[in-house]
């Protein structure tokens, strides 16, 4: 636990030691705002809720979250500091989890800083704040899912660009697996059972369910299981690299 916290603090501090945190948060907030108000036509919609805002989250995360996760392991491998980390008495699970949690808390912080949009909608109308809270929760869980995927793929390579591109691709598959772009590929020949299974992997399906304000245990279990599975895979990848 002590080691987990040490890794967590070091990682989180790492974001703020460089302009990375600042730049990321500014870009994150700017694009969130721009998408919501201009592309989403927030004012024109005349609705006092944040559905439009949350609708853009999966697509923004698709590019912004791999930008956070790509460095998690790839950078350690490139600079050689991974040798230091893994020869310190830090259990592997603590290193994997500490890094992931630091990235997750950081993305949570960026998400929390979108609160002016919440203030705006409360000023303009009388939204259902329960639904909005559920939306934030869903968004945070989804960010964790993207991060866990990115964390694992970052451990595969020492090249951050490769880690980024592969993460975006895999995250994309997970995002759209319920949409025709993926389903059509299987629908000709695969049985309905498999189609349903593939569709149930979609971030969008589960995220949209939560943002409607219905916090279903199945959606929570989906995201936590996904995060756990990808983090275990991440641990396995790091351990396999030890074997050479």
């Amino acid at each position: 636990m002590n080691e987990l916290l040490a890794v967590f603090h070091r990682e989180l501090g790492g974001y703020f030691a460089t302009p990375l945190a600042f730049i990321f948060i500014v870009i994150f907030l700017f694009t969130m705002g721009a998408f919501t108000f201009y592309l989403g036509g927030y004012y024109e919609s005349g609705q006092a809720d944040l559905a439009i805002f949350f609708n853009f989250h999966p697509w923004l995360y698709l590019f912004l979250i791999p930008a956070i996760s790509m460095r998690l392991w790839a950078e350690e491998r490139r600079t050689g500091s991974i040798e230091l980390l893994l020869s310190l008495p830090v259990p592997l699970w603590a290193a994997v989890l500490g890094k992931f949690l630091a990235a997750w808390v950081f993305s949570g912080l960026a998400l929390a800083l979108t609160f002016p949009i919440w203030l705006t909608v409360n000023y303009l109308g009388d939204p259902d704040n329960g639904v909005i809270l559920a939306g934030y929760l869903g968004s945070f869980l989804m960010a964790g899912g993207y991060l866990a995927i990115g964390s694992c793929l970052s451990a595969v390579t020492r090249n951050q660009v490769i880690a980024f591109v592969v993460s975006v691709a895999v995250c994309f598959l997970f995002t759209v697996s319920g949409l025709p772009i993926v389903i059509d590929f299987f629908s000709g020949w695969a049985p309905q059972q498999i189609l349903n299974t593939i569709a149930s992997f979609s971030f969008l399906t589960h995220f949209n369910a939560i943002t409607r304000g219905v916090i279903d245990l199945r959606d929570i279990v989906y995201f936590t299981t996904l995060i756990g599975a990808w983090l275990i895979a991440c641990g396995i990848v790091v351990d396999m690299k030890k074997a050479g």
Binding site: E3, A17, L88
Partner: peptide
């Protein structure tokens, strides 16, 4: 190798913490 974005003091504090 070390964590380049840290200062030596921060880095050594991290090591101290990991070393309990």
């Amino acid at each position: 190798p070390a964590y380049g974005d840290m200062t030596p003091r921060g880095f050594l504090r991290f090591i101290a913490r990991v070393r309990r």
